[in-house]
Nucleic acid binder design. Sequence first.
DNA 1: TATGAATGAGCGTTCATTCAT
DNA 2: CATGAATGAACGCTCATTCAT
Lengths: 222, 222, 222, 222
Amino acid sequence: MNLTSGRTPRQSRAQDTRASLLQAAIEVFSESGLNGGSVSRIAKLAESHDRMIYYYFGSKEGLFVATLEEIYRQYNEAESRVELNLEQPVDALKTATVFFVRYFRDHPEFVTVLNSENLHKGKHIGRSLLASQFSKPAIGLVHRALHAGQAKGLFRVDVSSRDIYVMISAMGYFYQSNQYTLSAFLDEPLRDPKLFYQWEAFVVKAVLRTVLNDSVKLGQFE
Amino acid sequence: MNLTSGRTPRQSRAQDTRASLLQAAIEVFSESGLNGGSVSRIAKLAESHDRMIYYYFGSKEGLFVATLEEIYRQYNEAESRVELNLEQPVDALKTATVFFVRYFRDHPEFVTVLNSENLHKGKHIGRSLLASQFSKPAIGLVHRALHAGQAKGLFRVDVSSRDIYVMISAMGYFYQSNQYTLSAFLDEPLRDPKLFYQWEAFVVKAVLRTVLNDSVKLGQFE
Amino acid sequence: MNLTSGRTPRQSRAQDTRASLLQAAIEVFSESGLNGGSVSRIAKLAESHDRMIYYYFGSKEGLFVATLEEIYRQYNEAESRVELNLEQPVDALKTATVFFVRYFRDHPEFVTVLNSENLHKGKHIGRSLLASQFSKPAIGLVHRALHAGQAKGLFRVDVSSRDIYVMISAMGYFYQSNQYTLSAFLDEPLRDPKLFYQWEAFVVKAVLRTVLNDSVKLGQFE
Amino acid sequence: MNLTSGRTPRQSRAQDTRASLLQAAIEVFSESGLNGGSVSRIAKLAESHDRMIYYYFGSKEGLFVATLEEIYRQYNEAESRVELNLEQPVDALKTATVFFVRYFRDHPEFVTVLNSENLHKGKHIGRSLLASQFSKPAIGLVHRALHAGQAKGLFRVDVSSRDIYVMISAMGYFYQSNQYTLSAFLDEPLRDPKLFYQWEAFVVKAVLRTVLNDSVKLGQFE
DNA sequence: TATGAATGAGCGTTCATTCAT
DNA sequence: CATGAATGAACGCTCATTCAT
C-alpha cells in the first residue's frame, strides 16, 4: 500500500485549489474587508491565479458570499461541539457565555468579515441559500441553558433566549470588534489577557444577574 | 468702507470649503469605509475638487483622522447636553442608557467610521492629539449616575463605571452595527421601531439588574 | 442487434456538436464581430464547451474561416434556387436584383460577418480553399439575365455583368449594413418596410436605366 | 515677436493631448474597430496615458463618440470645399459623384469606423448631440446638382436627391468597405488604380443614366 | 470522444497623489 | 487661494488557449 504516492487525482487537486482560495479569502477579507482585499492578493496567498477565483466563485462577490458561508459554518460547527451540563443550568449558561465571548476573541476574521458585510448592508448574506440555516444552532445553545434554568425555577421566565443571545454576542463581539478604538478611548490595552478575563467574568455576571430570579442569590454560584 | 470684503470674505469661504469637505467625508466614509470611499467622490459631494483635500488635509488619511475627530467631537457634544437627575439614580442610569442606545441608532456614521478605524487596527486614532480627551465625557455620564446610586446604597459598589459604560455601548452599538447580519440571522427586521424599543427596554433592564443591590427590587422602578 | 448504438450514434452526435457550434458562431460573430464574439459565448450558446471549438476547428480563427465558408455556402445555395425567365430579360434582371436586395435584408449575419472579415483585411478568406468557388454562381445569376437582354438587343453591350453585380450588391448591402448610421443621417427609419420597398423599387429602376439601350423606354416595363 | 518660443501654455498643451488622443483613436478604431482597439494602444500611439482618455472623454465609449463626431466633421468639411458649376448640371453631378467615391477610397477610417458603429446598432451616434447636423451638408451637395439639372429640364423630376445620395454613397462605400472580400470573390485586385477609375466611371454613368431625362442623350456629355 | 482544471496576458477603469502655474 | 493637467500603479474581470486525463 502506498499512501504517499505522487498521484494527485483531478478532483482532489481541484478541491485543494478551491479550498485554499477560500482559506486565503477569509484571511484577506478579514484583514482588509471586502473592498480592501484584492483578488490578486487572495490568489497569490493561495498560490493560485486570479483567474481561478472566477472559475470557482464567478466573481469577487461570489467569493465573498462563500467566505461568509464558510465562517458561519465554522461558527456553527464550533458551537455544536460545546457540551452543556443541563443539570446545572447556571454552569451551562456560564459555559455558553464563555464560549461565545472567547469565540469572538479567537476568531477575529468572523468579526471583521461580518462587519464588512454590514457595511454593505447585508446584501451578500441575502444571496446565500444557506443563510437561513445559520442561526438556529447558535441560539439553540443559549436556549437550552436558559430553558433548563427556567424549568428548574432558577431563571426568570420573562426573558427570551433571543435577547440573551444578542446580549452575550454584543458584549463579546463589541469587545473584540472595537478593541482598538476602545483601547484608545479607555486608555487600556483591551487585548491584555488579564483585562480580557476580567471582562469575561463581568459578562458572565451581567448575564446571570439578568436571568436569575430575584429569590436566587448569585453569590452561591461563584 | 471696505469694498473687497463682501458677504463671503476669503477666510470664511475657505472655512466653508474645509467644512463641507469634512461633512462629505463623514458621509462617504460612513457609507463605504476608508477603503471604499474615494477622494474624488468626497470632493464631488462637497462640490469642490480632489486637490482641495490635499490642500486642507494633506492626504486621504489626514482627512480620515479629521473625520474621526469630528465624529467623536459630535458624540461628546451630544453627551454634554444630556441632563441627569442625580437625585434619582435609577432614572439617571436609565436616561444615560437610553441616550447611548439611541445615539448609535441615530448616528450610523459614528458606528461605520469606528468600524473602519478598527479594521485598520486603530492606526489613525493614535495619531490624533485629541484622542485622549475623547473618552472622559462619555464615561463621565455613566459614572455620575452610577456613583449617585452607590452613594445612596442602591447600586453595588463592586461594579465599575467603565464596565457599565462598555456594556451599554456594546448592546447599543452591536444592535446597530450588525443589524443586517443579525436581522438575517434572527429572521427579524431589527430596524423595526417596535423591535428597537423592546431591545432598548431589555438593555435598560439588564443594566439595572447588573448594578442594583440584591436587596433592591427592580420592580419598584418600572 | 446493437445495443450500444442508440438514437444518436457517436458520429452523428459529433456532427451535431460541430454543426451547433458553427451555427452559434454565425450568430455570435454576426452580433459582435470576430473580435467581440468570445469563444465561450459561442460554446455556451451551442450548449457545448470551449474545448470542443478547439477540437473541431483548431482555433477561434479556424472557426471564423468555417463561418465564412458556411455563410457563403448558404448565399450560393439561395442563389441557385432563384429561377429566371430568360425569355423576359427585364423581368429576369428585376428578379435577380430583388433577390439580392432582399437577401442582404434577410441575412444580416452575411453582412456583419463580411464586414468583420474586411476589417481584418480579408486574411481569413484567403486561407479558405473554397474561396475561389464562391463567386461564380452569384455573378452567374446577373450574367444570365444580362446576357439574355443583350442577345435580344434590349440591353447595352458595353456594360459588364461584373459591374452590374457589384452595383446591385452595393445598393442592397449598403442599405442593410449602414442602416443605423444612415437612419440617423437621413433621419428616417430605414428598417421600415415601406421605405425598404421604395428603395428596392429605386434600385430596380436604377439598374434597368443603366443597362437598357437608349432606344428602349423603361416605362413599358413598369 | 517670438512665435516659436518654448512657451507651452497650459491650455494649448491640454488641447494637444486631447487632439492627439482623438487622432490616435481614429487610427486605432479604424484599424481594429471599437472592440478590437484598446485604450492602451490609443494612449501609447498618442504618447500619452490611458488615464488621460478618461480625463478627457470619460470612457472608451465617450472617446468613440468623439471619434464618430470628428470623422463626420471632417467629411462635412471636405464636402464644403467642393465647388459645383451649377451652370453645367451634368458636370456638377459628375463632380459630386467623383468626390464621394474618392472620399471613401481616401478615408478608409471613415468607412471602418462607421462599420463599427453599425455593428453596435448605432448606439453611439444616438448619444451624440451633433448627430442631427451631420447629414445636411453632404446631401446638399447632391441636391444642388440635381436641382440645377431639374430646373434646366435635363434631369427627371421624379428622382429624389436622397435616393441619389444613397446610391452614390452605396457604390463608393461598398467598393471600399468590401474591397477584400470582393477582391477575393471577383478574383481582381480592386485596390488597383486602373480598376478603381473604371469603377468610378461606371458609377458616374449609372448615376447619370438614372437621373437624365429619356430625351437627353448621355453621349453628348462624355 | 470528451472534460474539468489551469494559465498568463490583456482588458477597461479607478485609485490616491503630484506637477506647474 | 485655487485649478487643470498629468501620472503610474492597481483594480476586478475576461480573453483565447493548453494541460492532463
